[in-house]
């Protein structure tokens, strides 16, 4: 059967949003191929997945899954890929998915189409499309056997289904002692901080905001307030990260994160080709820049010509007023 196996990542007992999107993509692809979407859960109960597109739900159990292990998770996924004889294996391209799914694919002697933004069927065979060169080009690929792919967060929508799936426990056939790398401790980042790669809305700051340790202090506070007002993650250009103004995890662009939020607001970013590459997959782009010739306006859907000092606080107020209704 041309079934689609989807690894559904859980965090604190709940499926993460990107994983539900992957399950949605898997369920639509399975329908097109004439098969079933099979969810694989490690470290969760799989409870709601029948309503989110899964026709079957496999839930792994055993002492080997008490903490995340790249080699352990890879083994479970590769084992289930073999057991289900899936035609396609999917996972979300989150930090966890990017880490272990490559190992799992190699274990299955397969390649990996990483960070895909589109899945389709051509001539009866699944095809994955993925941005390369940070989105300067798109690569369509096909696998000779099982297609393994990770899917970019926010590039696919969730699905709803009738909840007919039953939970099938899967015993993990190895114990914790056989794992090579296991997470021992998780050092918290900033509490409740949204990751730019996964956020639906991103507000990014560039050199135009100036040094936060000097004259730019108020600008960065204003940017944070704007992000808070609309539930956005804060991103940054490379120049800003290289100057040490923002942590490198915030960097958007070819040598940072490639993002596809539904709304990207670039503030004081001129738009170097590397930055444009990293964010041009966003659904809607807003640019605020004092230089009307800045390259950022070439990709922006909406632009405001003006200084960040003036426009950003005004925009925060306008959003707040609008959201209050």
């Amino acid at each position: 059967m041309p079934d689609v196996l989807v690894f559904v990542e859980y965090s604190e007992g709940k499926p993460v949003k990107a994983a539900l999107q992957a399950l949605g993509a898997g369920s639509r692809l399975a329908t097109e191929l004439g098969g079933t979407a099979i969810a694989l859960v490690i470290g969760g109960d799989g409870g709601e997945l029948g309503k989110k597109g899964a026709g079957r739900v496999l839930v792994a159990s055993g002492d080997a899954i008490k903490a995340y292990s790249p080699d352990g998770y890879a083994r479970i996924l590769a084992d289930q890929a073999a057991a289900t004889r899936a035609a396609v294996v999917l996972a979300s391209a989150t930090p966890m998915g990017k880490d272990f799914v490559a190992r799992a694919a190699a274990r299955a002697k397969c390649g990996l189409a990483a960070d895909c933004t589109e899945l389709k069927v051509e001539g009866g065979k699944p095809v994955a499309v993925r941005p390369v060169y940070a989105g300067k080009a798109m690569l369509a690929v096909q696998a000779p056997g099982t297609l393994w792919a990770t899917l970019r967060p926010n590039a696919f929508g969730e699905a709803t289904s009738s909840d007919a799936a039953k939970i099938e426990p899967v015993a993990v056939g190895f114990d914790a002692a056989s794992l090579m790398a296991v997470v021992r401790e998780i050092v918290e980042g900033v509490r409740g901080k949204l990751d730019v790669a996964e956020a639906e809305v991103v507000v990014s700051g560039g050199r135009g905001l100036k040094d936060p340790a000097g004259e730019g202090k108020q600008n960065w506070q204003n940017l944070e307030k704007l992000a808070d007002a609309i539930g956005a993650a804060v991103g940054a250009s490379r120049a800003v990260v290289d100057a040490g103004w923002r942590p490198h995890g915030d960097q958007v662009g070819q040598t940072g994160k490639t993002v596809s939020p539904k709304l990207y607001i670039a503030c004081g970013i001129s738009g170097a080709i590397q930055h444009l590459a990293g964010m041009s997959g966003s659904k809607v782009i807003v640019a605020i820049n004092k230089d009307e010739n800045a390259p950022i306006f070439k990709v922006a859907d909406y632009g405001i010509i003006g200084t960040v000092e003036e426009v950003v606080p005004a925009l925060t107020e306008a959003f707040s007023k609008s959201l209050r209704g």
Partner: peptide, 28 residues
């Protein structure tokens, strides 16, 4: 052989032309 074979390399989908909404705080 490659694990995933290249079918084609394409330019990214073009973005529609944008518009300048206005200048300064008056445009927000």
């Amino acid at each position: 052989a490659d694990g995933v074979a290249v079918l084609r390399l394409q330019p990214p989908p073009p973005r529609a032309d944008g518009k300048i909404v206005g200048k300064g705080a008056d445009a927000v």
